[in-house]
């Protein structure tokens, strides 16, 4: 392989749920510093792919490697600490916590503060708390909801909740940020702003894996695209290649015809 090195490698991953093969020998990799789009019709296995990568599901066969390390059987919070963070297609914020606290939970991922540090307010607690708060606010600034940091997460608007999901994931200090349909339910203008945000996030040094249904958007923002259909990878390439790929057009026919053509 040429160019930048692969950050994450999905190697021949198959996962079955009973009789259903949700992912069927899927292989692709994500290169450092790129924005990779993961697309495909409903039920194609995109979210399942995220779940395998983040340790929610164990692959029936095949493996995922991150930074050369095999992720199989690694605990989920350990995978996060290694540097993979994600958002959820169905928003899953800590609703009773404030916006800032939500992000702080992410920022705590690398904290070494323990029970006694907290109980006796040892220097490590103070230092870490101050640093995480500052970092959390910085991230909230980036996603554009800093002003609302004291709100309860459940009181945010739908769009801001999606932004908070991204902020919380960013706060874990990942190398790879996986966004599962972050623009779902957005209007076109909001979508555009979000894509700008994603580009900015990449420029901050993150590698981004993006699931998104809106083809035009994906084409605009990604460096490369992987296409899934019925759990199989049917295409991979730069946006212009994907646009003209007959298999992709066929897969999207009747779904998003004009976007695909």
């Amino acid at each position: 392989m040429t160019g930048p090195k692969a950050l994450l490698e999905v190697d021949n991953v198959t996962i079955r749920f009973g009789g259903l093969t949700a992912l069927d020998s899927v292989t692709f990799d994500i290169r450092e510093g790129e924005i990779l789009g993961l697309i495909g019709p409903n039920g194609a296995g995109k979210t399942t792919c995220f779940n395998v990568m983040t340790g929610v599901y164990q692959a029936t066969s095949g493996q995922v490697r991150f930074d050369g390390k095999v992720l199989t059987r690694l605990k989920r919070h350990k995978i996060t600490k290694l540097g993979i963070a994600r958002t959820f297609q169905n928003i899953r914020l800590f609703k009773s916590m404030t916006v800032l606290e939500n992000v702080m939970v992410g920022a705590d991922a690398h904290s070494k503060v323990g029970f006694f540090d907290a109980l006796f307010r040892l220097p490590r607690h103070r230092r870490t708390e101050a640093a995480s708060t500052a970092r959390a606010k910085e991230i909230l600034e980036i996603v554009g909801i800093r002003a609302r940091h004291d709100e309860l997460a459940s009181n945010l608007s739908y769009g801001d909740q999606r932004r908070l999901e991204i902020a919380r994931a960013m706060a874990t200090g990942p190398k790879l940020l996986c966004l599962d349909e972050p623009a779902a339910g957005f209007n076109p203008a909001e979508k555009l702003r979000l894509m700008e945000l994603i580009r900015r996030v990449r420029d901050e040094g993150y590698t981004v894996l993006l699931i998104e249904h809106d083809m035009r958007l994906v084409m605009g923002v990604t460096d490369r695209i992987v296409v899934l259909e019925f759990g199989r990878k049917i295409a991979e390439g730069v946006p212009s290649e994907i646009r003209d790929n007959p298999a992709v057009i066929a897969a999207y026919l009747g779904v998003d015809e004009e976007d695909a053509s």
């Binding site: 929610v56 919070h77 963070a85 994600r86 914020l93 009773s96 705590d108 323990g114 029970f115």
Partner: peptide, 21 residues
């Protein structure tokens, strides 16, 4: 502190908390 946040996050959504480290 971090401990209290971890408790609350776990109570709210254990899977999400785990995935946030």
């Amino acid at each position: 502190s971090r401990v209290g946040r971890a408790w609350e996050a776990t109570r709210e959504d254990e899977d999400a908390a785990e995935l946030m480290g």
